[in-house]
Simulated assay, not measured.
Amino acid sequence: MSTLPCLDFDVKTPACIEWRSNDATQWLVDPDPQRDHLMLESRFCNETSSASFQLLCPIRVKGIESQSHIICLIHTSSITSFDFEENPELPDPVRKKLNCKAIRLHLESCQPLDFIVPAAATEPVQPRKRLSGQAFDSLRSLAKASSLDIYISAREVSQIKLRAVCEAISRGVMKPFHTDIPALLASLYGSSGGKIVNLPPLRKNSSESPNDEPPSYADLEPPPPPDDCLLPQPKLKSPLADTTATAGGSNTKRRRLNDSGTSSDADCYRDILDTLCHMREGMQRLMERVEQLEKENQDLREELDDLRASCEKATDAIESDEAAFLEVHEELDELKVQVDFLSQGGLYSDAEEHLVEAVTDSVLTHMLDGGYNAKITIEKS
């Protein structure tokens, strides 16, 4: 089997999902909380010709107090078609969420997605908030899709690697990255474990047939009033008793409303605390980043000062070298003129005067010495 080029890489990037359901286009763009992103996590190994595809959707589910996510597992062996398109026309929800140049990955599968939740989540799996319910409805619709488009940033993966994946899937040589599903489930959620679940309908009336689509969270109506409110009230004998009973009934109803709203209020407070914690962590990270940038800025300033001082020294040295070079050049010019003059047999005036003086002194000295010797000879005779 020939090896596949450029197939060793990991991808974990924000994504948006698009699919068709009941002749209508559906998107999964905003999880809960909305400030987070739906993530595509993929791994590819050239040596083993294996790959994995997972979609991580942040969502709040009952039984898990902290923020968690649902994993949508796409079985590699079930992918019948894989293709991509660079710089496609983005739908408005996708463009607002990603806000960058994107690539659209097109997947077709012969097997539905598996949904994995933390092992501590209660069953049947239920969302804790209305926003989680809306994302939950989208996941229920996505579970029935056999074809989906995944939008990711164009900067995350090259076209060469995507073509290698397309070639591997078209040749049917791509294998699942994880073959031991129990071991995979045990390693998820910080090794606390996960489990594969079916997403149940949120509400089902007795008049619905088993194949009817359950209502979405956005379409749910308030629950009907309690049965005791529909019963006829007994006629009281006195207005005082009637007033007392009415007040008592009002208080009873108020207590019930307060009791029913306690859970939602607690969730609201918990969300506010989570938001404040995230804001505090974000501010702390920003402060640390600012301190780091200030330190780097100070180091750069000191380095810049050193460079300026070095440049000034180098400039002074260059100027000194230039002056010395000019002096040497002038001396060389003078020496050249002297050499040319001497080579033509010429003498400078100073040299001539010195030569005349030397010859004169020599002649006079010789004459004086000769006359002195002659006188001495005569006297001896």
Rank of each mutant, 00 (worst) to 15 (best):
S132N: 06
R270D: 04
L368T: 13
D267C: 01
E47V: 04
P222H: 00
L162H: 11
T179R: 05
A102L: 00
S77E: 14
E352N: 00
D274M: 06
A51M: 15
A135H: 03
A314E: 10
L56V: 08
T48Y: 01
G346M: 13
P124T: 05
P93H: 08
F53E: 01
L56S: 03
I152Y: 03
T243P: 00
D321T: 03
L73T: 01
S343T: 04
A351F: 03
E330P: 02
P200K: 11
P210H: 10
L107M: 12
S362I: 06
P232G: 05
S146G: 14
E108V: 14
D369G: 06
I17D: 10
I17R: 05
R128P: 01
K101M: 00
Y151G: 03
S320Y: 09
A51L: 14
I181Y: 15
F115C: 04
L199P: 09
L286G: 10
Q134H: 12
G133L: 09
V197L: 07
G133F: 09
K313N: 10
S349H: 10
R140K: 13
Q111R: 08
E85S: 05
S78P: 13
P232D: 04
G190F: 02
E156F: 02
P127D: 09
Q134P: 00
L107C: 03
C45L: 10
K101I: 02
K204E: 15
R203Y: 04
A314C: 10
H354E: 09
S343E: 11
N205A: 09
E331D: 07
C6Y: 15
T246F: 11
N46S: 15
S264H: 12
E65T: 05
A314R: 12
P5E: 13
E89W: 01
S50N: 04
T252L: 08
G194W: 11
H37Y: 15
S250M: 07
T76A: 10
D242R: 14
K195D: 08
L4C: 03
R35W: 06
E213W: 06
D306I: 01
T252V: 04
I17E: 07
R285K: 06
A374V: 08
M287C: 11
Q298L: 06
R308A: 14
S343F: 01
S343R: 13
A358I: 00
T365E: 12
I378W: 07
Y151C: 09
E331S: 04
C311I: 14
V197M: 08
H354T: 11
M287V: 10
E331T: 05
T275H: 11
K195C: 07
G133E: 06
S132G: 15
N258Q: 14
P118W: 11
P33I: 13
V157Y: 01
V363E: 12
A314F: 03
R95I: 03
E288D: 11
E221G: 03
G371C: 07
P112C: 12
L231I: 09
C229L: 14
M39T: 01
Y348T: 09
P33Y: 09
V11F: 02
G345V: 07
Q67V: 11
K204V: 13
L38S: 00
R60D: 09
P124A: 07
D299V: 05
L307G: 00
A183L: 04
L199N: 11
K97V: 00
L56Y: 08
E291R: 12
R60V: 00
L236I: 02
D92K: 09
A218H: 01
A245T: 04
A358K: 02
E353K: 10
K295Y: 02
P127H: 12
K12Q: 06
L307P: 01
F177D: 00
R95Q: 09
S320P: 00
